[in-house]
Nucleic acid binder design. Structure first.
Lengths: 205, 205
DNA sequence: CCCTAAAGCAACGGCGCGTTGCAATAGAGT
DNA sequence: ACTCTATTGCAACGCGCCGTTGCTTTAGGG
């Protein structure tokens, strides 16, 4: 979401009705996505619920994918705070918990599932997701850099790998295995990954 | 896929036409799923390509979800061989590579994406996926048990956690971040997780 | 060689798709 | 206040797929 993915004509009349329509449509799109899922998403239903004509959707966003992408970009800027508990293990556990909580929000969950389902055939959506995770990992890498500064893990530790491993495990359970995402698991996961970082630095070659 | 998820009337005439129809439909379903994705899946198209009447699909499988589920169950029995390289790190790298290769098969990738996209609103599909991963992890845990036997990792190491962490990372890149899944990454991942197991045993408490 | 389970066939109303031509409206610039 | 034009609304279109129904045909198990 850092790079400028132009998917919508620049607003020449940014104020007033256009902006209202835009906001209503994007909000409604995410709500519908959360309620019925991407496979059953109906542009007619979105238009109706948003109090907008169907024609407007096609004229402004071109296609279902364009609309969904813009809705996700608009409302997907959620920043997740970087914890600072004093230990890598604690930070990873706290961060994982934040991810779990966020991923249980219907809109967030629907967004993730949509990306997973169309990531191979909608390059613009895949690109947006890639950018999103890239920046998110850059921020979250802070917990590893602090651990390095504390001497808790080797200086050649790869922050990305550490954070990615934690995040990946959470989403695997959410999307595929369906196993529980309780505090017990989060703690064990954080301990395990933190131990790996201490031992290997995540940059073994 | 171990437990008996009955989603289809028991075949009273298992030989001959019924079996042929069944096979053709399930094959075609997965092919279509791979080509157009779950969101655009058309039962009419499946029937036509399979040389079967549309009515048959609804009478036998009831709904789109039932059909997709059975297709996945039927053809999803893929066994992944458990590597034995002599070291946990080597085994995990080999296993991860197998997963990467398998996940690039169009049918397998389509299946995974389908599960991820409807896992929250199709309990039968979610259950099947859960069972699939449970048994797969049980088998793959062998690499960890051997590492324990070799004294490479602590005896209280949790085999599931170790294997799951590796698998999860692969699927995260495939489904969400889109980052590369080359040998370099697989090696770093395997080294990192193996180091975590050596240090923590994955069962910290 | 039967006879019945299973598959084929034809048609149904309904709905969402994506597009089109034209009318209404609202907001930005003067 | 007044344009004037970008934007939205509106109505209607053909199309394809949905999921179902009643009936006929067929094939394979006994």
């Amino acid at each position: 979401m850092t790079q400028d993915i132009r998917t919508e004509p620049a607003a020449r009349r940014p104020g007033g009705r256009s902006a209202r329509v835009r906001g209503a449509v994007l909000d409604t799109t995410l709500r519908e996505l959360a309620e019925v899922g991407y496979a059953a998403l109906s542009l007619e239903a979105i238009a109706q619920r948003a109090g907008v004509n169907k024609t407007t959707l096609y004229r402004r966003w071109g296609s279902r994918e364009g609309l969904v992408l813009n809705a996700m970009l608009e409302r997907g800027q959620r920043e997740v705070p970087i914890p600072d508990t004093g230990s890598l293990r604690g930070d990873l556990a706290a961060y994982a918990t934040e991810i779990v909580v966020a991923s249980r929000t219907p809109v967030v969950e629907a967004t993730i599932r949509t990306v997973a389902s169309v990531g191979d055939r909608e390059p613009r959506i895949a690109d947006a997701s890639r950018g999103f995770w890239r920046t998110r990992f850059e921020f979250a890498g802070e917990v590893v850099r602090r651990a390095i500064a504390r001497g808790e893990v080797p200086p050649d530790t790869d922050p990305n790998l550490v954070v990615e491993t934690v995040v990946a495990s959470v989403y695997f359970r959410l999307l595929l295995s369906g196993d529980e995402l309780d505090d017990g698991y989060v703690d064990r996961l954080a301990a395990f990954v933190a131990a790996g970082a201490s031992a290997a630095g995540g940059a073994q070659r």
